[in-house]
Amino acid sequence: MFTGKVLGGVTAAIIFGAIGTIFYFLPESGAAQLMRKAFHLGWPGGLVIVILMLYFQFGRKNDPRQGELVFKSVIGLLGYSMLFIAIANYAMNFNDESPGVPGEPRFLPVSLVMFTVACFTMAMYFKGVRVLLQIGGFMFFVAACLAGFGNWLPQVKADPPPAEEKTADVRQMSVQERADLGEKIIFGAVGASGTQGAIGKGQCPLCHGFQKGFLSERAPNLFGIPTRALERLKDPRYSQADPSKRDTVQKEACPGCGTAQTAAEYIAESHACPNCYVVAGFGVKGSNDRESPMPASHKPPIALTELRRTHRR
């Protein structure tokens, strides 16, 4: 009653029934899409096998091996379909590796399992290449296990950190490059120096104006600083060449630093030691201009690196 042929027929009926059900009720499901894709990719070869099968069935009536040939082409077609469904799985899901989304590339090893099954099934019927198919199938199996394990583990995808510009050696830079870098540090972007107001907490334009006429209540407007710096140096309160006479909370930028001699040095000193000289009227309230509200720019929280402080316009 339960002969091999009957059972084969039953199995085939179940498989075809399942495929039909999927296509009829769930035409847009992943499985249906997969089969469509497989058909797209593999129909020419499949057609050849079907033609062969028909030829064996009807064109070789007298061949004693007719039954076997037809059966082998059916089995071949089955293996071929499996092969292309597996390939379609690769084609559809290869690049999709969003972690956490089920059923995507993590199911690629299923393809390897299908190759394995196809190889071993074919090996049962195609005796000539049996060993090759079995070895191949076994290798597919080993690879499927390992790849499956790799996909079963939790997945992390690591993005590179945002491209960080390496602080180049400023001494190698042209004047224009240095100025651009400075503008970027102060205003956030090259060409942004024309706008009024702060770009963020702790940034220079929060207190200083940088253009003529810009509001600059908390700290002096820095427009024209290169020429004005020379005037500051002559201010008796600056006490050039003798820092010990300064009436401020901090007299020198560093012990033995002395005072500035040129405009550039003055600007540098102001960055490192805002307290050394406070422009009249801009001191901390009640300190009688002995103490500056500005933080030293090379210390936290500003913490510009030594190189960065030198890029000012």
Binding site: P105, R106, M139, A143, N151, V156, K157, A158
Partner: peptide, 18 residues
């Protein structure tokens, strides 16, 4: 420049091996 998931790596290694 990103680093692929382990699964992707495993799939590729399997492909190369086979």
């Amino acid at each position: 420049a990103f680093t692929h998931t382990i699964g992707f790596g495993a799939n590729m290694i399997s492909f190369n091996v086979l």
